[in-house]
């Protein structure tokens, strides 16, 4: 049976993980390679690097980080942020990403999804969608890191992304992001029921029960977690234990690396 995934997201700027990450006993707490492999040993099913680089120099540094990470990480790695063209996708894949997520660029030019899927297969093209409810209660798509609203409606946009070649949807609720009050299960369910590819719920995880809700009520195939892990509020193991107890199929955490 296909298990539900717990994906850990790290914000990376150049060669460093930014935002606080509080692992006890890890010497270089800002090193993406060390953190990614540490989360793998804790039982994370996948790692996502969100590139928040502000310059071309930082961006090329990140590709080097991806290369070093891929040589030590033996679970899937997704890279997102700043991807504009199919050539950008090619560079990220060559550097060591298994999947690449595309956000603003897909809104500007949706053909980038098709071009990337044709070259590398749908399974490595992730449509990243940031959604926020407007005054009328409609989920609108926002771009440029949540700074700019578009007229697009999130569910219809997700369907278009999939029809254009995306093999997975990473769905972030801007309303919930960082709030730790739970994922937007209505949004997640609406998108998940409207597309035939896996949907990753993102934004709002505060405790383990929120992950269970996103999967059971929101019909998410995977859940993305960041802050509560980096801040040491909980652990991958504790989150997965609760998911398993709730009857959700999850990958067992290997004993030999968990000790």
């Amino acid at each position: 049976m296909l298990t539900r995934r717990l994906i850990v997201c790290l914000d990376v700027k150049g060669a460093r993980v930014v935002k606080g990450v509080q692992f006890v006993g890890l010497r270089d707490v800002g090193d993406p390679v060390a953190l990614a492999t540490r989360y793998e040993s804790e039982g994370a099913d996948e790692i996502t690097f969100l590139d928040i680089s502000a310059s071309a120099e930082e961006r090329s540094t990140l590709l080097d980080v991806a290369r070093r990470t891929a040589e030590q990480l033996f679970i899937p790695l997704t890279i997102g942020g700043g991807i504009r063209t199919a050539d950008d996708v090619a560079r990220a894949l060559r550097a060591g990403a298994d999947k690449v997520s595309v956000n603003s660029a897909a809104v500007t030019r949706p053909e980038v999804l098709t071009e990337s899927a044709d070259r590398f297969g749908a399974q490595c093209v992730v449509a990243s969608i940031d959604a926020k409810r407007d005054e009328q209660g409609v989920w609108r798509v926002w771009v440029k890191g949540g700074r700019e609203q578009t007229p697009l409606e999130a569910v219809a946009w997700a369907q278009e992304c999939v029809s254009r070649g995306a093999g997975e949807v990473l769905l972030t609720s801007i309303d919930r992001d960082g709030a730790r009050i739970g994922y937007d299960t209505d949004l997640t369910r609406a998108v998940s029921n409207a597309v035939h590819v896996p949907v990753i719920a993102s934004g709002g995880a505060g405790r383990a029960e929120h992950l269970v809700e996103a999967i059971e009520t929101g019909h998410a195939d995977a859940v993305l977690v960041a802050g509560i892990l980096h801040d040491g509020v909980t652990t991958v193991r504790a989150l997965k234990d609760v998911m398993r107890s709730a009857g959700i199929p999850v990958r067992d955490i290997p004993v030999e690396v968990a000790a």
């Binding site: 298990t3 035939h196 590819v197 896996p198």
Partner: peptide, 11 residues
Amino acid sequence: AERVPQIGWNT
């Protein structure tokens, strides 16, 4: 299957 591609860990 309904959900294709299959992405994730399976037994």
